[in-house]
């Protein structure tokens, strides 16, 4: 969902690459309507690539055709999107190598003055 917003970094700034992550899982209620709504907004390939890096391998490589009503798929998507939290780590922009540090689950998106 995030892309690099450093000034002048317009191309190839998505997805941010996660490094040195510590994951935590928190159970959340499954909300199918919400997931269906999110389906259209997701860059699915980027999500799968990110998940593979984080060792979450249950997402299928392509989006199933009946995604909106495939309970099994929605369950997996739900797990990846809402139950997996990155507690500490770094997000690195693939283009300009800007590093956003994540502490206590809060990414620091502040930019230095020359980057605005």
């Amino acid at each position: 969902m995030l892309q690099c917003h450093v000034k002048g970094c317009n191309a190839n700034n998505f997805p941010l690459e996660l490094q040195e992550v510590v994951l935590e899982e928190q159970e959340a209620e499954l909300n199918e309507d919400f997931l269906r709504n999110m389906l259209g907004k997701l860059e699915y390939e980027a999500l799968v690539a990110t998940c593979l890096k984080l060792n979450i391998q249950d997402l299928p490589p392509t989006i199933p055709e009946d995604a909106a009503y495939n309970d099994d798929f929605l369950q997996k998507l739900h797990h990846a999107l809402l139950e997996t939290h990155v507690i500490t780590g770094k997000m690195v922009c693939p283009n300009c190598q800007h590093t956003y540090v994540i502490r206590d689950g809060i990414p620091n998106m502040l930019l230095a003055e020359h980057e605005v």
């Binding site: 969902m1 995030l2 892309q3 690099c4 917003h5 998505f14 907004k41 860059e43 998106m109 502040l110 930019l111 605005v116």
Partner: peptide, 8 residues
């Protein structure tokens, strides 16, 4: 500083 969310 603007926000870094994907369009839409």
């Amino acid at each position: 500083q603007g926000m870094a969310f994907r369009p839409g």
